[in-house]
Simulated scan of single mutants.
Amino acid sequence: MKVFKTLTGVAFAALITTAAMADNHAIRMGTEGAYAPYNFINDAGEVDGFEREVGDELCKRAKLECTWVTNEWDSIIPNLVSGNYDTIIAGMSITAERDEVIDFTQEYFPPDPSTYVGLAGTSMDATKGTVAAQTGTIQAGHAAETAKAVVEFATPEEVTAAVRNGEVDAAIADDAFWQDVVKASNGELEFIGEPVMLGGGIGMGVRESDTELKEKMNAAIASMKADGTLTKMIAKWFDGRMVKY
């Protein structure tokens, strides 16, 4: 009985979302708000970062009114499926496992290397020791296969604190996330080991039933690639990184 009610609720939410989209009403953009420079909460308490700028431009081009919703990472996919918001735009890499549950637009950010960080002077062998990663990430999956042990944390801040406090030998996350963290550590943290390539780039997650929304966002992403807007935004938020589309 509970399963029937849940499925009915999801289907109903999908119908409401489709109708709202057709009428140019608000589409709720779900993000974590804790993974700079992709997304974070600024001093005014608002969602900010690369994905806020990209998302607002996508909504403008798709002629959709968008509002922003924050959600903890470990439940971000279930809450999309349940209808609590209509997209995930949260530094989420496209993977086959996730694609079995939700659908993805084309990537709006290319595959980013995953890198390891440790305390200054840490040996490269630390990447095979006890490694910290955020729960539900491709990095946590990789560490589970390659390290002696993986310790998962709910937030990026907790991952950083674990390696800083010596609770783990190393930590792994997207290279773009670590860049500012390492710079701000004043030499306390450093990159160790070799970068690894994981995932198929970062895309916007949508419910599998929301094909019209996916098509609208795909068209908007394609137009941002074609006119150079996306390239400029990536360079702005990622230290001049040049990506050509």
Rank of each mutant, 00 (worst) to 15 (best):
V150T: 14
T155W: 14
G166D: 11
K128C: 01
S185I: 02
V159W: 04
S185N: 03
G166Q: 09
A132R: 01
A147C: 09
A132F: 03
A170T: 01
Q134D: 00
T130W: 06
D180M: 10
A173P: 00
T160I: 15
D180P: 07
A184D: 11
D180S: 14
A173C: 05
V159R: 06
T155D: 11
I138T: 15
A149D: 12
T137L: 12
V159C: 06
A133D: 04
A140P: 06
A162G: 10
S185P: 01
V181P: 06
A133N: 10
G141H: 07
V150W: 02
A184W: 00
E145D: 07
E152F: 10
W178T: 07
E158M: 15
A173G: 03
A149K: 15
T137I: 13
G141C: 07
A126W: 11
A176D: 09
F177H: 05
S185T: 04
A161R: 15
G136N: 15
G187W: 11
V163M: 11
F177Q: 06
V181F: 09
E152C: 08
S185E: 01
A162M: 09
V150D: 09
H142Y: 15
E158P: 01
F153K: 14
Q134C: 00
Q139K: 12
F177S: 00
N186F: 06
T146P: 04
A162D: 12
G166Y: 05
Q179T: 13
T135F: 15
A133R: 00
A176W: 15
G187M: 00
A154N: 13
E157T: 13
E188L: 11
V163N: 04
D125F: 02
N165M: 10
S185D: 02
T135K: 13
T135R: 12
Q139Y: 14
V182T: 03
F177D: 01
E167I: 06
D174I: 09
A126H: 09
E157C: 02
W178E: 05
E188W: 04
